[in-house]
């Protein structure tokens, strides 16, 4: 069963068609890799699915429901969480608070609970804080980090924090945009464990990544984009050896040199 299906999804920015007529299916419970050279439209795909950009045409079906161009927060609450290629944390929030932001809807409290500091809110606070700590544990952020500012963490931890914030939505689909970019070996290995761990909890993952080692190690299925179009899809090893894919990557590199 597919958790996410896009039908003819197209996004253009003025003259540039960043996503062109994409039919992409993501099977429930799987890790799908979305690869392709720089500028091929991977981030744009995540942006359209998560509601950050409005689709020019085409549809996004999530769990059988058409969610095309829904508001970002509605998509998030429906169960699609994401991270960002360039890390976006909250400048003045601590690690724990950052995760709690995404727990907002789970509080089940109203403004009056805050004003009168009701027992209901106190219970919700305790419950959500406990859950946030669990999530931080999963991504490897321990007690000593809870009250540090998110942006003051080392790079790898900041990526982990973004993942924890995304997981705090209790999503059924997690969109990761180049999570391994800029990581050192140790962080990289740990990230791999996190991803497999998340999968094990039954969360479907779409992984956009340039580090083929990671893609190879974790994905079940692979989709290759080039110039906004789907070039091919299939198991990773098939994609990797596909001459069109090799040409797309090489052609790009030559052009860049």
């Amino acid at each position: 069963m597919n958790i996410l299906e896009t039908k003819g999804l197209t996004k253009s920015f003025g003259g540039v068609t960043a996503n062109s007529d994409l039919d992409i299916n993501i099977e429930k419970g799987s890790i799908t890799g979305l690869i392709g050279p720089n500028g091929s439209g991977k981030t744009t795909f995540i942006n359209v699915v998560s509601g950050v950009h409005k689709a020019t045409s085409g549809r996004v079906i999530f769990n059988g429901q058409d969610i095309t161009n829904f508001d970002k927060h509605k998509i998030a609450r429906a169960g699609i969480a994401r991270t960002f290629q360039t890390i976006r944390l909250f400048e003045r929030l601590s690690v724990l608070e950052t995760v709690l932001v995404a727990r907002h809807a789970s509080f089940g409290a109203k403004i009056w609970d805050a004003v009168f500091s009701t027992p209901k809110l106190k219970m919700a606070n305790a419950r959500e804080e406990a859950r946030a700590k669990e999530l931080l544990e999963i991504v490897g952020l321990g007690k000593q980090h809870y009250h540090q500012m998110g942006n003051s963490l080392p790079y790898g931890y900041r990526r982990s924090l973004e993942i924890a914030r995304a997981l705090a939505l209790e999503p059924s689909l997690l969109l990761l945009d180049e999570p391994a970019a800029g990581m050192n070996r140790e962080e990289f290995n740990f990230l791999q464990d996190i991803i497999l761990n998340v999968k094990q909890q039954g969360i479907t993952i779409l992984l956009v990544e340039h580090t083929m080692e990671l893609v190879e190690a974790v994905v079940d299925h692979c989709v290759v984009l080039n110039y906004g179009q789907k070039l091919t899809e299939g198991p990773f090893c098939d994609c990797e050896s596909d001459p069109r894919v090799i040409e797309a990557y090489l052609g790009k590199e030559e052009a860049e040199c």
Binding site: R77, R88, E91, A102, R165, L169
Partner: peptide
């Protein structure tokens, strides 16, 4: 205040 887009993607209306 700190990042409107990230807040919305975290489910904040």
């Amino acid at each position: 205040r700190d990042d409107e887009l990230a807040a919305e993607c975290s489910g904040i209306n």
